[in-house]
């Protein structure tokens, strides 16, 4: 049987969308799937060093519910999406790639990003890795 894998193109940088990224990655590694996460634009900006700790933004369509959502998560001790992603990395094979084009555009270097990011990847390289598996755009 071919290796099962889940690939995610993470374009969004709001907390409400970064949670499903981390939780889907966790579920996939639990099932022994390999996970590739390709961070681009706001997804990549949300992993600049120090950004995850500051980020309180939620999607525009539910913006009004943002503060309430953050309050409930804190009250219920829900681990952060970044910690959830780190746990997934401990459990299985999760590779986090930064989009080369976004890096160039915003003059970013890998040391500007949180250590959860493994490398800088081009789009063709990512698509080659993703081929044959499930790919989500978030």
């Amino acid at each position: 049987m071919a290796e099962e894998k889940l690939s995610m193109v993470v374009f969004s940088g709001t907390v409400d969308k970064l949670y499903p990224v981390a939780i889907m990655a966790s579920g996939a590694v639990a099932l022994g799937q390999r996970v590739d996460i390709f961070l681009t634009f706001w997804g990549l900006m949300s992993l600049r060093k120090g950004a995850p700790q500051q980020n309180q933004q939620v999607s525009k369509d539910f913006e009004a519910m943002g503060p309430e959502m953050m309050r409930i998560m804190k009250e219920k001790n829900v681990p952060s999406w970044l910690d959830t992603l780190r746990t997934a990395k401990e459990i299985g094979d999760v590779r986090v790639h930064a989009c080369a084009m976004t890096m160039d555009l915003f003059d970013l270097k890998q040391e500007d990003l949180e250590d959860v990011v493994d490398d800088i990847t081009g789009v063709a390289q990512f698509l080659t890795e993703a081929q044959g598996g499930t790919t989500l755009f978030i």
């Binding site: 939780i23 966790s26 579920g27 639990a30 219920k76 001790n77 829900v78 681990p79 959830t84 746990t87 997934a88 401990e90 459990i91």
Partner: peptide, 14 residues
């Protein structure tokens, strides 16, 4: 107990 999805599964796997 008190952990949210997928917390318990991840703890079990570990």
């Amino acid at each position: 107990r008190g952990s949210f999805c997928p917390g318990p599964l991840m703890e079990l796997i570990r």
